[in-house]
Write a protein that binds this DNA or RNA. Structure first.
Lengths: 226, 226
DNA sequence: TACGAGCAACTTACACCGTACGAGAGATGG
DNA sequence: CCATCTCTCGTACGGTGTAAGTTGCTCGTA
């Protein structure tokens, strides 16, 4: 009756499967990147891993914790700058890769506001941003305020950019802009005018403009030996 | 049997209750501000309004739509600047009130990344930011890039600020900083050093630093008549 | 006055979610 | 051989957003 022949392939209380914290995080990242934030549930993730939902909870205390792990993992994709270049090009490079990292992982920018980001990779990233500045003679306060300003800008920018989705990557406004413009033209003429400015649809240029502003401001405000 | 005495006060298929899109949004805002993002559900919101869950769906197509309405409503709290002041103090003022608006409504910053924010109040805010610059002689492109840069910075900053919660408002690091520092000191010395810099715990000063940077950059980069 | 239309609220039901709790199977060490 | 530890699983609970259909109220028209 309860012979082996009638038992499921991996009945109940199975032996160690491929599960591990790393494997779970890896698969979660894959789901997030491919299907987006809304599509990640513990149940689906477990199914994707060929395991039962509750099996994940041995390796990860809660879904929020898993999300924090995923967030930190993405921070790990940021590589530290070449130590030979000056602080400005080092930081400029890091900001660019941070923006592209955000565009690669839209869920990352959207979720980063929910958690504290004090995992090893996040802290490592902050440290890597501070290093070139300290080496160039920035005080601890100047360096940290500069990093805070730079990354605030980049995160804020990427958030807006991700938000407008793939529309932002097109060279041409989306089709319903016409209706939108008609609706708002009278009340908000400057906005509508701006919307129709083709040059503005280059987010690359917009990003560069902002980054230049911030860096200029830092250079003007900080005493560097140099 | 089904006499009035035995019927509920407002049985089934009731007459018009106080429900309306405005009332729902108002109550939703109240719940969001008082209890936070996680605590807002259609069911609880309905209960709070003395209505059945599904009753809300007559006035609002979906919860996402409701959230968009709430987001836009908060944009409405931003008042346009005094038209007599120069563009810089106008923008500076708007950025300050935007930051404080974000601190008043933490859920707002955290959620703003999920939706497009093209409601009337959001667009009105953008328009109000463009106005002083256009009047000062900024080109459409310069003005819009400047606004984009400024608001990216403010949103990004507020996101981080809200994130660290009330801790950020204290004059003293939270108690578990010591453990944290011990754990990371060897690997990430600059970060830990920064963390112990007492001056850095003034987020007001940090914000001012960043805002000054951005505004300086704009001034250096844009041809104004003036 | 009777009646159909439409508005605004309701009930029920479905599929899904995170996860507490406890039961197991297998490996390991005494 | 037994106890213990490690990992996986099944069940169940209380929640979620919302599709579908139902009921009563009010009002314009006959």
């Amino acid at each position: 009756m309860d012979s082996v022949w009638f038992s499921k392939p991996r009945p109940s209380g199975g032996q160690p499967l491929g599960l591990s914290r790393e494997a779970i995080v890896r698969k979660a990242l894959q789901v997030l990147d491919e299907h987006g934030l809304q599509k990640l549930s513990m149940r689906k993730l477990a199914a994707e891993l060929g395991a039962a939902p509750m099996s994940l909870y041995w390796h990860v205390p809660t879904k929020d914790a898993l999300m924090e792990l995923c967030l930190d993992e993405v921070f790990g994709e940021l590589e530290p700058p070449d130590p030979d270049v000056d602080w400005e090009t080092a930081l400029r490079g890091m900001m660019h890769s941070m923006r592209h990292l955000a565009l690669r992982h839209p869920w990352w920018v959207k979720t980063i506001g929910e958690y504290m980001s004090i995992g090893p990779n996040a802290v490592g990233t902050a440290d890597a941003m501070l290093e070139p500045m300290r080496n160039a003679g920035f005080s601890a306060v100047d360096a940290s305020q500069s990093v805070s300003t730079l990354s605030s800008f980049v995160i804020g920018f990427a958030l807006a950019e991700v938000n407008f989705g793939d529309r932002g990557r097109l060279d041409v406004p989306p089709p319903d802009v016409a209706r939108f413009a008609d609706l708002y033209r009278d009340r908000y003429p400057r906005y509508v005018e701006m919307m129709n400015e083709p040059e503005l649809w280059s987010l690359d240029r917009q990003f560069e403009f902002g980054l230049d502003c911030v860096l200029d401001g830092i250079k003007a405000r900080v005493n560097v030996l140099k």
